[in-house]
């Protein structure tokens, strides 16, 4: 499960690397030059009466890894680095959620300039201006049909189409998210 999260993050961050990416290298290049941004996530799940929307920020530092912060509708912060995925607790400490995934290794591999690893997990194709990632990994294939990344002028959209037909759309924006403070 968290393998997916990591892979998605890899793609998300990579997506902002270049408005018109032609390959994974271009995505990685942007990540290194523009590592902070916001996201809006829409979950289209059949059983839900309306899409579930969440918003937040991401922040990447090569030395510390990636921070994925959900701000709405609930505050939650994930730290992804070589040790795995940690959930940042209220007191500022981090709790290792699990480490048996390829996230940190994949991320670091990618940002260090080795994109061969991502190619091992997915068949990477170009489709109508989008980058299509078709899972190779047996476990991921059981859950995910396709991941697409479509860059536009000032944003990018990442879509995850699950085996059952549910879909998650993540809009990535290279600007800080302005959310009004909660009422006192």
């Amino acid at each position: 499960m968290r393998v997916l999260i990591g892979l998605l993050l890899v793609v998300c961050l990579g997506a902002l690397a270049d408005p018109k990416p032609t390959n994974i290298d271009a995505l990685r290049q942007f990540t290194l030059t523009n590592p902070v941004g916001t996201f809006i996530q829409k979950k289209h799940i059949k059983v839900l009466s309306q899409p579930f929307i969440s918003k937040g920020e991401y922040h990447f530092e090569p030395a510390n890894g990636l921070t994925w912060t959900t701000i709405e509708p609930v505050q939650n912060q994930l730290m992804i680095n070589a040790k795995g995925i940690s959930e940042i607790q209220h007191d500022g400490s981090s709790k290792l959620m699990t480490s048996d995934n390829a996230i940190s290794a994949m991320m670091l591999t990618l940002f260090m300039g080795n994109d061969q690893q991502l190619s091992k997990e997915f068949v990477v194709e170009k489709r109508l201006g989008c980058l299509a990632l078709i899972p190779i990994n047996t476990q991921i294939k059981l859950m995910i049909d396709l991941i697409t990344f479509c860059p536009a002028d000032d944003q990018a959209v990442l879509s995850i189409i699950e085996v059952g037909g549910n879909k998650t759309e993540i809009q990535l924006l290279p600007i800080p998210l302005i959310i009004p403070p909660p009422n006192p």
């Binding site: 839900l48 579930f52 609930v74």
Partner: peptide, 21 residues
């Protein structure tokens, strides 16, 4: 309720899709 929101807010959680029906 909070856990429901938290799980749906995750980037992607296949367990949600697999069980929510």
């Amino acid at each position: 309720d909070q856990q429901y929101i938290r799980m749906l807010s995750q980037l992607a959680d296949p367990l949600v899709s697999m069980t929510i029906q």
